[in-house]
């Protein structure tokens, strides 16, 4: 029996496409003003005030080691992630569509990843748009709390 495909939210950050099961995405907010947090690690883009909740906005590219330092900006679109603990969100340059990805498209992360990549990438998916990285929410969250 075929395992049914799951719906993923796909967004673009820098040169990469990221995807996460819809169930793990809490909301998408466009162009949120960001407050830079001094002394924070490089992958923290800043803080956003979402209706009274202070959300830490992460730069996944910096987290994966593709960029040394995050490129600070005044505002960004964000994908707020659904998990318990401190509220976190991923910065997105553009939100793409949602997409159904089944076992046919999803592959285990390749073996030739760097350490930071293998820490945070659970799977990759080959789509018509290109390669989509599926990050592991729990490992990301573990860097924050």
């Amino acid at each position: 029996m075929k395992i049914s495909a799951q719906e993923y939210l796909i967004w673009k950050s820098g040169n990469y496409l990221f995807g996460l099961e819809l169930g793990h995405c809490r909301e998408i907010v466009n162009e949120v003003p960001l407050t830079r947090l001094p002394r924070a690690p490089g992958f923290v883009l800043g803080l956003a005030n979402l209706r009274g909740t202070v959300v830490s906005v992460l730069d996944l590219e910096a987290l994966l080691g593709y960029r040394k330092e995050t490129l600070y900006r005044e505002s960004s679109s964000i994908v707020r992630l659904r998990h318990s603990g401190y509220p976190i969100a991923a910065a997105a340059d553009a939100i793409r569509d949602t997409m159904f990805l089944g076992p046919d498209e999803l592959e285990a992360a390749p073996a030739n990843l760097t350490e930071s990549e293998s820490n945070f990438i659970r799977k990759v998916a080959k789509t018509s748009d290109g390669l989509v990285l599926i990050p592991d929410l729990a490992s990301i969250a573990s860097r924050i709390n």
């Binding site: 947090l37 002394r39 924070a40 690690p41 923290v44 803080l47 009274g52 909740t53 202070v54 830490s56 603990g85 401190y86 976190i88 860097r143 924050i144 709390n145």
Partner: peptide, 15 residues
């Protein structure tokens, strides 16, 4: 209004 802030490693904490 005071909100909690995550701790990105104990040694860096000054907030």
């Amino acid at each position: 209004v005071v909100k909690p802030l995550p701790q990105f490693g104990q040694d860096r904490q000054i907030f």
